[in-house]
Design a protein around this nucleic acid. Structure first.
Lengths: 343, 343
DNA sequence: ATGAAAGCGCTAACAC
DNA sequence: GTGTTAGCGCTTTCAT
């Protein structure tokens, strides 16, 4: 913390011949203190370089005004936009954020949860790690009445508060669009299907196929970690399939883009030979050529919704909703990588 | 923080007919407590669901074991890799991280600095906002002996500890490579040149031109915010130049990629008509076609270096270095967007 | 090997 | 309008 001494309210009190209580009240502009005293205290505080000790205040108030957030990784455009939206709401409300990454591993997620709990965050926001199936490491928060909200990667159980995109509907819309463009043999590249987001996308894909009288071919479903590298490997696998597929729908843009690029390098024409689509509307979706058809995932909006709902709850403004799922409408962005008709 | 009650060491002490001091010591495995008592206390703590109150401990110890980090934005691949590297070093050392974003604005950076100070972070790591010129908002940390380390976007003054890439040398190497590929009229797209990173890149570009007997044409230097959108606008500006440039070196990959793509759409052949290069080795650099020549910016390594140096200092293992700059070697990645010879 | 007591800096009843 | 007092939960000297 420091080696040199901090100025405390006692230092100010002594100098002004006042009690610590008066100083404390003046500093927070309590109306029970005279204008004159308040101003005097505030000036003195500024002059002496007083900085309130939030640690002491937090201990005394039993509140930290800190919201903890645990996310799989920070290097995702979607997460970054959620964070941006989230902060714009909670900061004016007097809260700040502490962020940690699980790196997609439960053990780290558990460790982070413990740290957050011990730091006495006022609320916890979580998007689950890839291999998290059990969420009992968040139970202590619930038991102590600390709100735990999930977004994007949420648990199955419905005794919690969740914010998700309409992954299923988005996937149906996207797959249907590909079918309308003439695709009949569509490969789906999925992530870890124990996660709602990937499972819903997979199910939406299947539903659209069935609705259009197409068969679900299990050889056409590839599961990997949706990374850049996996996109390249998926492309190679796709090229080895017989008959050759005429569409690829990957569950994120990074993987879709890498796949598209690799297919092109192998001489496949996009979208004529194989149409390709992604998910998330990540900046990379506009970098590849042709641009990637994808689903707009409004992270900023999601961040704001979660934050607003949370702040309302922390301020006791909303009825205490322990559970409930808020579903955010997605938007299909039709772009060159799937549009055979208008090129 | 909570509405229901937390278990404290007093609860354990009462149950076991011990003093709080003994419980506290047992919990941290102090050798002055008998094995038997220690084990008993630990078992009881687990059974009762005891969770140490870090807030109280921090207040008492005058140390939070928390490192604050202020970055311009989180939606940058480089920053994300720095964070990943940083955490892998500080966590095992018993520290955790609190992150906040300045969104490239000083006012937010100042507000974040105040919050970090009041939260009594044990150290502060900063990469400056675009419009930060004065860094006096970090003085209170210095005054209290809290280490402040800068990385990437660092202040000019050398009375601080900094970690940077060899931006100047990297830029010289990249520009020279373009000249060797036959470029004679190279446009440079720069960011805010009050920032070392952009200023150094600009100067490296100029140096390489001069070294090769080429003239620095100020119409060929475009300054913007290096965003995707700015890349598109820069491309339009470039196409309006007479004579048409034969090379573009943008100070980051996102802008370079957007520019490359826009140029291509306007019928320019890359690299034959115009060669394009970026900076950072962001994933987008491998998404465009041809792939973008760029400078590898090892964020992971930088994060680890900063963290190691900081942990050493916090543990008193290193001589107290108040200042000093550590320069990290970059690497030129020659790719299709500039290579005319082997295409 | 264990306990008593003080105090980190702040806030909030409760007094007057 | 201001002061007194107690205490948030923990750690640590000093005793024993």
């Amino acid at each position: 913390m420091s080696n040199k001494k901090h100025i405390t309210i006692y230092d100010i009190a002594r100098e002004l011949q006042l009690s610590a209580a008066t100083v404390s009240r003046s500093l927070k502009n309590s109306p029970s203190i005279s204008q004159k005293t308040r101003q005097l205290v505030q000036e003195t505080a500024t002059r002496k370089g007083y900085r309130p000790n939030a640690v002491a205040s937090n201990l005394r108030r039993q509140k930290t005004n800190t919201i903890g957030m645990i996310v799989p990784r920070l290097d995702s455009y979607f997460i970054a936009t959620v964070l941006a939206g989230f902060e714009t709401v909670i900061n004016p409300a007097g809260y700040h954020l502490i962020i940690s990454q699980s790196f997609e591993r439960v053990e780290k997620e558990i460790a982070n949860a413990i740290t957050m709990f011990n730091s006495r965050v006022d609320a916890l926001i979580v998007s689950l790690a890839a291999d998290t199936t059990d969420t009992s490491h968040f139970d202590p928060f619930i038991a102590k009445g600390v709100p735990v909200f999930y977004f994007d990667r949420v648990p199955k159980k419905d005794t919690c508060r969740k914010f998700v995109l309409d992954n299923f509907e988005a996937s149906v819309a996207l797959t249907s669009h590909m079918i309308e463009q003439g695709c009949r043999k569509i490969v789906h590249i999925s992530g870890n299907i124990t996660k709602n987001v990937y499972n819903d996308r997979l199910n939406g894909y299947k539903k659209a196929l069935v609705d259009h009288g197409l068969e679900v071919n299990h050889n056409y479903i590839i599961t990997n970690d949706l990374s850049f590298q996996s996109g390249i490997e998926a492309a190679e696998k796709i090229l080895s399939l017989n008959p050759l597929p005429d569409g690829v729908f990957a569950a994120n843009d990074m993987c879709a883009a890498a796949c598209l690029q690799t297919l092109k390098e192998k001489g496949i024409r996009i979208p004529d030979d194989i149409a390709v689509a992604g998910f998330n509307n990540d900046p990379v979706s506009r970098m590849v050529e042709p641009r990637l058809t994808t689903i707009n995932y409004p992270g900023d909006l999601m961040g704001k919704l979660v934050a607003t709902s949370l702040v309302d709850k922390l301020n006791g403004k909303s009825p205490v909703k322990i559970s409930g799922t808020q579903i955010i409408k997605s938007e299909l962005l039709k772009r060159g990588s799937t549009c055979r008709i208008n090129g």
